[in-house]
Simulated assay, not measured.
Amino acid sequence: MSRRADIAVIACGAIAQPAAAIVARRGWPVDVHPLPPLLHNQPQLIAGEVRALAARLRPAYERVVVGYADCGTYGALDAVCADEGLERLPGLHCYDLYAGPSRVERLFADQPGTYLLTDFLVRSFARTVLQELGLDRHPDLRDTYFGHYTRAVWLAQHPDDPELRALAHQAATQLGLPLTVLATGDSGLERALADVVGPDSP
C-alpha cells in the first residue's frame, strides 16, 4: 500500500463522514478509514476490529490514531490502544464529542429517559434502529425497547438542514417520543481530532 498521508484515523462509521469533512477543510495530512457503523450494535467487537485494522494500516503511515470514544467497549478499546501504542478520541461515546460530556450528563440528569440522536442516526434511523431491532417487522416491540424513554434529543450538527430536521421528527414520532433539538455543530469533534492528529497539524 502506498502512503497517501502521514496519519491514518480509524474512524467509527458513525463519525467518519464529518471527520473526513473536517480533515479536508483543515488540510490535514490524514486519511480516514471507517469501520462499519453497525459495530455499535455489537460493541464487544470494536476493540478487535480496531486492532486488526491498525495492524493493516501501520506499514503505510507514520501514525495511526483511533477515531472512537469508548463506545460501549468498557475499557477494551483502551486496552488495545495501550497494547498498540494508539491514541483515541476522548469520552465515553460520540455524543460527548458533539455536545461535550458535561452537557450530556446534564441531559441525562434532567431526564434519565433521554434517547440521543446524531445527524448520522437521524439519516440512518430506518436501518440502524428500526431494522436492526426488528421494529420494521414487529412494531409492537416499540414499548419493549423504548417504553422507559421520555424524550428524544437530536444533537444536531446541521440543525438548519430541512431534510435532517424532518427525519429527526420522523424518528421521534416512530419512537413515540417528543423531540428536543440541541444544536451542537462539529466543533467539539474538530477539537478532539486536532488533539489526536497532533500539534504539527495546521
Rank of each mutant, 00 (worst) to 15 (best):
Q111Y: 06
A152D: 11
A172R: 14
S102E: 15
L89I: 01
L121N: 10
D110S: 06
A99S: 03
D78T: 11
T173R: 14
G100T: 10
P139G: 02
L167K: 15
L155P: 15
S124L: 02
L133H: 03
T114S: 08
G134S: 12
Q174I: 07
D161V: 10
L97I: 08
S102I: 02
A79N: 07
V153I: 12
P159F: 09
D160K: 00
G72D: 12
L92K: 11
D136T: 04
P159I: 06
C81Y: 05
G147I: 06
H138G: 02
Q157S: 14
P159E: 12
D161H: 10
C81D: 01
Y149C: 00
T114F: 03
T150K: 15
V129Y: 12
R137S: 14
T144D: 14
Y149S: 02
A79K: 15
R142E: 06
R127L: 13
G113R: 03
D160T: 04
V122F: 05
D161F: 09
P112A: 09
Q157V: 09
H158E: 15
E105S: 14
D143Q: 15
H158M: 03
D96M: 00
R103H: 14
Q174N: 13
D160C: 06
Y149R: 01
L135G: 05
C71Q: 00
D160F: 04
Q174E: 15
L155E: 10
G113M: 03
G91V: 13
D160L: 03
Y145A: 00
L86N: 13
E105G: 14
Q111V: 14
R151K: 12
E87L: 10
L97K: 08
L155S: 08
Y98R: 07
D70M: 06
A156C: 12
A166W: 09
D140N: 02
L86Q: 14
G176V: 03
E84Q: 14
H93D: 10
R103K: 13
P112H: 11
W154R: 11
A79V: 08
R88N: 10
F146M: 04
D136M: 01
A82R: 15
T114Q: 02
G85E: 09
G113L: 00
L167H: 07
A109N: 00
A99F: 06
H158V: 05
L86F: 11
T118D: 13
R106K: 10
H169R: 14
D70V: 05
A109H: 11
F108P: 04
L133D: 08
